[in-house]
C-alpha cells in the first residue's frame, strides 16, 4: 500500500481528472442532446448540423476522450508510483 505522502497528491490528481472529465463528457452529451436542434436549419454533408453535432461529433469526441483518459490516468499512476507494474 502507498504511504500517505505519496497517496494524497496521487488521489487529488486522480479524483480531479475523473470528476472533471466525467462532468465535461456529461456536459457535452447534455448540450448535444438538448440544444443541438438550434442548428438544424443549417446543413452540412446533407445532414442537419444539429444531428451531425449530437449524433456524430459529440460521440466521436467522447470516444477519443475516453481513450485519452486511459493513457493519461496511466501516466498519473506512473508518475506517483501507483502503477500496477511497479
Amino acid at each position: 500500500m502507498m504511504d500517505p505522502e505519496r497517496f494524497i497528491p496521487y488521489w487529488r490528481v486522480t479524483s480531479r481528472l475523473s470528476f472533471m472529465l466525467a462532468g465535461f463528457l456529461f456536459l457535452l452529451m447534455t448540450l448535444g442532446l438538448c440544444f443541438s436542434h438550434i442548428f438544424d436549419r443549417f446543413q452540412f454533408l446533407g445532414f442537419p448540423v444539429g444531428v451531425l453535432l449530437a449524433g456524430h461529433f459529440v460521440v466521436l469526441l467522447i470516444i477519443g476522450l475516453m481513450f485519452w483518459f486511459t493513457g493519461t490516468q496511466d501516466h498519473v499512476d506512473n508518475n506517483y508510483g501507483a502503477n500496477e507494474d511497479l
Binding site: S18, L21, L25, M29, L33, G50, G55, I62, M66, F69
Partner: peptide
C-alpha cells in the same frame, strides 16, 4: 432525434463505469 436521450444514456453509463468505478 429525441431517442438520442436513450442512446446517450447507455453511452454515458459505460463511460461513468469506466471513469468512476472500473479501476
Amino acid at each position: 432525434v429525441d431517442s438520442f436521450a436513450l442512446l446517450f444514456g447507455v453511452f454515458g453509463g459505460v463511460i461513468l463505469t469506466g471513469l468512476m468505478m472500473a479501476s
